[in-house]
Nucleic acid binder design. Sequence first.
DNA 1: TCAATAATTCGATTATTCTGGAAATATGGA
DNA 2: TCCATATTTCCAGAATAATCGAATTATTGA
Lengths: 123, 123
Amino acid sequence: MEIKTAVDCFSALAHPHRLAVFRLLMRAGPEGMSAGEMAVELGLAPSSLSFHTRWLADAGLIASRRDGRRIIYAVDVEGTRSVIRFLSEECCAGHPELCGFAGRADVPNAETAGHPDQPERSN
Amino acid sequence: MEIKTAVDCFSALAHPHRLAVFRLLMRAGPEGMSAGEMAVELGLAPSSLSFHTRWLADAGLIASRRDGRRIIYAVDVEGTRSVIRFLSEECCAGHPELCGFAGRADVPNAETAGHPDQPERSN
DNA sequence: TCAATAATTCGATTATTCTGGAAATATGGA
DNA sequence: TCCATATTTCCAGAATAATCGAATTATTGA
């Protein structure tokens, strides 16, 4: 994941209303939720909600599909996984022992375990 | 982790210069790096760098200590783990199968591991 | 085609963030 | 004590983000 993309993702999550949208959609699951429902749920003007959903969509964290005259939003699973992976890998970069979050549960932490004494990079 | 804290953390990472500072410190490891070094490395005015380090520190992602007349910054491991955990748990909330990132088996992450059939929350 | 519904884009306004120079604070060494 | 170094805080000004009403676009059903 590129730095710019990562910044965009963090920016997308860096606002109470947007984080609320994201959480709402997480709970809604694959079926998602319409823009209107979310606006009501969060007490936002439709235009404001649209402003935020666009931001999340541009970051690749949510996606939209049309259903009749409604637009349904749902979490973009791949995009979301990417941010988590980015943060986790940044976190353990060179020092996996620090954060204890070096990898996936289903990937027997090969690199992590091995992690041959990082050259301690002095610059 | 509270919503507000999470937003603060994401905000802290949501700027190119701050993310650069964070990455720099990740690579520097526990020994950290002085404000001056980082300012030079990133080509920022000392006051600008200070503005960003403060933000990261307030979010709990980095911490500072004095060494003579220099201030050394280093990653706050606990704070960083908290954000990753928050994002991962938000991600899998109710639908761990979606992101495949429900947590590490060997990390004290009990609530996640247990994951008792989420009440499917219909609102 | 026309009215109703759902959402987005446009616009102006307000609020917040970012920047770096200048001044202030803290430390170390002559 | 006095000066140099390291960093932060203060202060404008410039840039960006957030808000919501009004206008616009898209869809459905009569």
